[in-house]
Nucleic acid binder design. Structure first.
Lengths: 251, 251
DNA sequence: GGGTTCGTTCTCCCATCCAGAACACTTTAG
DNA sequence: CTAAAGTGTTCTGGATGGGAGAACGAACCC
């Protein structure tokens, strides 16, 4: 459902913010040709955002300020699921020595809430707040597998099934087959689909009424994850961490 | 300097966002009486923000979405200082077992970029994105001590010297005296000013041309920090971590 | 000097924002 | 059961204010 009376001025501001996010620090003119607005309009919006801390100016360049982090950080902190899951994801990272992640679904997309690096962890270019298509990661598949089928259809409809790499899921049928497997096993796997040589194991976290709240995962280079580990100890650990979170959520 | 032609519609949207942040999930009517707008206007802004992922609706309640975290997370990730400092703050937390923090100055306020908890760490209510007055924390004092004097005056003028607790700094002269001490020692201390029983040690991080980029700190309960530690091993560790960051920043 | 950028300012017309009223519900009261 | 009071949502027209386009000032670079 879409807005009956959209505030067009606000939409322009938001477009400007996203343009600024994509381009990084830049001048008024550069910003203007990426947007459907005149130079004076862009300038007015920039100075307005600046007065409220959302935009900074250094010399002749404008850039996003940390006010967005303030709002985003407060939003995240207010989520019970994050509060409970955060320490568990950290210990998962410490115990395995690898990269552990926390993802939730919002508007049909996956949003990383945090990542925690163990001693040996690889450094991926994920970060808190990053959005991904759900079907492209183990985390996303763990969530999709436990959503009602019609919601999954809705998400496919809305967000598509764009193929990131040749090995990734690219059709509706393929996805549902994979999700079936995830439900059987209890955890989801990404064996190099997202990034060559990277293996991920993810488990869903559900509340007392069986609704998915999100998913947690461990990502490690294939060189450190044997085929045995991939269906042995590692899933065990991830599932166990997910279980602890579930217990704590329901007090 | 303020905007010559502020975009009032955008300002209304921003006011609404901040109201929503303060109140948490709430209905249109509740939101309306905290704002200088009519109900239909609030509704229009909400639906517009919703279409772009900045606001979510669950039942009859609206709340902030994780889009702010996406923008804020991308902003933070793009900061070189954060990228370099992040791993060092983490090891500082692991080595000491306490809570380690990273703060930068923006618009005369301190903004936490991250916090990392060691094994024994106390759990403060700080979070990435949180803003504080600079004079109220060790981190802030470490930064103020290495800013040009006129910038400090400017910041006092703009943000005031509100006293958080009876023990905290409350006058211009007091502040400058403390900053003098911070410069002499090389690190700043908060001995229960912000929170009874909490001790913090903070060190500034400067770039090659001696400009402050931010500050790092360790916070620990007084019970675990002897008077000796307060001017002994602990500052040593914090300063050492700050030094590593400085070296890495300048390649 | 002339020619090119850039960011910023100005003004006036017309798009559009929004108060207020009306509507469609649900909840509460008696 | 009806009535009253709450909620979120829709609609409309008139006053407001957003922004195109032009002009300005300050850098630059031949």
């Amino acid at each position: 459902m879409d807005a009956k009376h959209p505030v067009r001025t606000t939409e322009k501001t938001l477009a400007l913010v996203e343009e600024l996010m994509d381009r990084g620090p830049c001048g008024v003119t550069e910003l203007t040709d990426g947007l459907d607005m005149g130079k004076s309009a862009v300038h007015n919006h920039l100075t307005t955002l600046r007065e409220h801390g959302y935009v900074l100016k250094t010399g002749d360049e404008y850039q996003l300020g940390l006010k967005f982090l303030e709002v985003g950080g407060a939003t995240r902190k207010s989520m019970e699921f994050y509060q409970v899951a955060e320490p568990e994801v950290k210990s998962l990272a410490n115990e395995t020595g690898e990269l552990a992640n926390l993802l939730v679904e919002e508007q049909g997309m996956g949003v990383y809430l945090m990542r925690s690096k163990g001693d040996e962890a690889v450094d991926l270019d994920t970060y808190a707040g990053l959005r991904t298509h759900l079907h492209t990661t183990a985390l996303g598949k763990a969530i999709l597998a436990h959503l009602p089928e019609d919601r999954v259809e809705e998400i496919i409809e809305r967000r598509g099934l764009e193929r990131k790499t040749p090995r990734s899921i690219g059709s509706r049928d393929e996805l549902f087959e994979v999700l079936e497997g995830v439900r059987d096993r209890g955890y989801a796997i990404d064996d190099g689909e997202r990034l060559e040589g990277l293996r991920c194991i993810a488990a869903p976290v559900k509340d007392s009424s069986d609704e998915v709240l999100g998913a947690i995962s461990v990502s490690a280079p294939a060189s450190r994850v044997s085929d045995e580990d991939l269906h042995g100890e590692l899933p065990e650990r991830v599932l166990s961490a997910a279980n602890v979170i579930e217990l704590n959520i329901n007090y």
